[in-house]
Design a binder for these strands. Structure first.
Lengths: 101, 101
DNA sequence: GTCGAATATACGCCGATGGTTATATACGCG
DNA sequence: CGCGTATATAACCATCGGCGTATATTCGAC
């Protein structure tokens, strides 16, 4: 999946909103504070990335979260995660030592 | 930390290269296959984001990884991770069931 | 101090992208 | 069918970011 899809704040905002529950475009538009077409455009990008799915309901489109592609980001982070947590461990050990003295 | 720093493929590439060991600008330039100023520019962005640190050695600048800011990305992923792993669990259970039959 | 090596900064160009307004499409309703 | 509602697409514009070239800077060697 493409990182730049998540680089856009409005799109991360959308994902965060969909974390709670599916929402229609109108609601997202209002919450994001941008134009309806602007919202639709972002939703298109998210849909192409497989991060959201749509359900039709008359004129409404309900967008819901599809978190699976985020696993790729998670996978990319893996080798780094080892490193920063190692440093945190070292920090903790250091602080523990401080406490003793 | 800003997601768009990682949105740029060349910058992720740099981080991946620094995962192995610190490297000088010239080496990175060659490995990335872009101009030296281009490399320096990306390094500037990474430095501003706290993702790399520099050590001077005569004219050489050795860039080394600083993975800590990536923890923010990891944190952002947290609520989503629950969701996709839940789905994976369900898939696994499903596959297990399939095996039985 | 002068030269070459290594890197950083300045600048200009160009394509990508996000935002808006205008318009098309799809649907339920009367 | 004609209308209002909800959303998508088109067209356009402004900004941003990444690229390269040219130039400045810093440092060691001589």
């Amino acid at each position: 999946m493409r990182f730049d899809v998540l680089a856009e704040p409005a799109r991360r905002r959308i994902l965060d909103l969909l974390l709670e529950r599916p929402r229609a475009v109108g609601e997202l538009t209002e919450l994001l504070g941008l134009s309806q077409p602007g919202t639709s455009k972002h939703l298109r990008v998210l849909r192409d990335a497989g991060l959201v799915a749509v359900r039709k309901d008359a004129q409404r489109r309900w967008y819901e979260l599809r978190p699976e592609p985020l696993a790729e980001i998670d996978a990319w982070l893996t080798p780094y995660r080892r490193l920063w947590s190692r440093r945190l461990d070292a920090l903790e050990r250091h602080l523990d030592t401080m406490e003793d003295t």
